[in-house]
Amino acid sequence: METFSVYVPKLAPKYEGLVPGHRFCIGCGEALAVRLASKALGRDTVITCATGCLEICTSGFPQTSWNVPWIHTLFENVGAVASGVESGLKAQMRKGKIPEKKINSVGMAGDGGTSDIGLQALSGALERGHDFLYLCFDNEAYMNTGVQRSSATPYGASTTTSPAGKVSIGQKTWKKNLPDIVAAHNIPYVATACPSYPFDLMEKVKKGAETEGPAYVHIFSPCPTGWRYPVDLTVRIGRLAVESGVFPLYEVEDGSYKLNFDFPKLRPVRDYLKAQGRFRHLSDDEIQNIQQRVEKEYKKLKVRCQET
């Protein structure tokens, strides 16, 4: 830990794109993730934001929490609006209307805005090859409207529209693998990140912003309100998700997979699940079921890392 104390203050950018005074819940993992991302992005950034927690908590008129230029229009169109921002800036620079300068066009949306309602706009923008970075802050449900399930909600989680009950274990489907769907577009850079690993997150966001062409970072954003765990555990929960293999941290650069944190032995998923109210109802059998699935997916990922 000798080097640790030197490492931290030196490497973290001092810049804050998001100022305090925002209305995120106490202990919000998304707020932390956005704050870290905005440090990595720096001043020369234009953010396109989807409707959701991020928008509501940072933009109550007549005030804004943003130090960088920021636009919100609707819920499902971040990919398209960011395409327009990127094209508008590029065209004007090419035509000499504004000075040439590297400006990051960055889209930000939640898991619902990305993997459900905004998937088409995202896919279109990725396929067209816009030079932009898309950040998905995944808190695994529609938190802003009161914890309704999305396609990013994990199997077994109880939400208000996939409630656990006498004849239901809660969410009956496995979490949609958005990073893989994005990677299938063959874009130059895809990564997963988690604010519990702040330097890894900031490096990936920076790398994504510097990538020429589309880049995507899927950021695991623990939510004490929706996941029902004590507010001080946000960073710990994120770490448990990574250490148990529930949310592995990896990159896909030009089609080649790389696991950033590999663990010789994964932590039992039980440690991760039992810390959260949304999984409290799960039986040992179901936990075992999830354990097997996580191991299988993790193995698949490792094979891909070796093969690519």
């Binding site: 229009t73 169109n77 609006v81 327009g84 921002v85 094209s87 800036l89 209307k97 279109g124 067209r128």
Partner: peptide, 24 residues
């Protein structure tokens, strides 16, 4: 000009909003 061949009209107008917002 940049011609953006979007994947829907919803995205056409959305891209126009983004573009116009940059002053293009």
């Amino acid at each position: 000009a940049n011609y953006i061949p979007v994947e829907s009209e919803h995205s056409a107008m959305s891209a126009c909003l983004g573009s116009s917002a940059t002053g293009a």
